[in-house]
């Protein structure tokens, strides 16, 4: 069981690190640090950097959480089967 638990936690951390890198890139990266540079590109009537800062980053945040839900559900199943994690207190 111990080995199992360590494996679960390691894979979990890997998922967190990759998702949070995207989170950082779209907000702090595209929305702030690289925003002025991205503004030379146009997305319809938006400058691209401005769009990331006021729209795009938010859409990607939602997608990230749902990818996380999906990956973790799969991971839970792999290590713990269909165990129900509810408690009754």
């Amino acid at each position: 069981m111990q080995l199992n638990k360590d494996g679960y936690w390691k894979e979990n951390i890997k998922i967190l690190v990759s998702l949070l890198s995207v989170w950082f890139l779209v907000s702090f990266g595209f929305g702030i640090l690289l925003s002025d540079w991205l503004d030379q590109f146009q997305l319809g009537g938006f400058k691209l950097g401005f769009w990331f800062a006021q729209q795009g980053s938010i859409y990607i945040f939602i997608i990230l959480i749902f990818i996380y839900i999906h990956l973790l559900n799969k991971l839970d199943k792999k290590y713990f089967g269909d165990r129900d994690s509810g408690d009754d207190n």
Binding site: L16, L19, L20, W23, S27, G31, I32, F50, A53, Q54, S57, I58, F61, L64, I65, Y68
Partner: peptide, 17 residues
């Protein structure tokens, strides 16, 4: 003003993960 938009939504990614 983007600080409020990204700050107050991006926090949910941190919270959820």
């Amino acid at each position: 003003g983007s600080v409020y938009l990204m700050g107050w939504t991006g926090g949910y990614v941190v919270l959820a993960l």
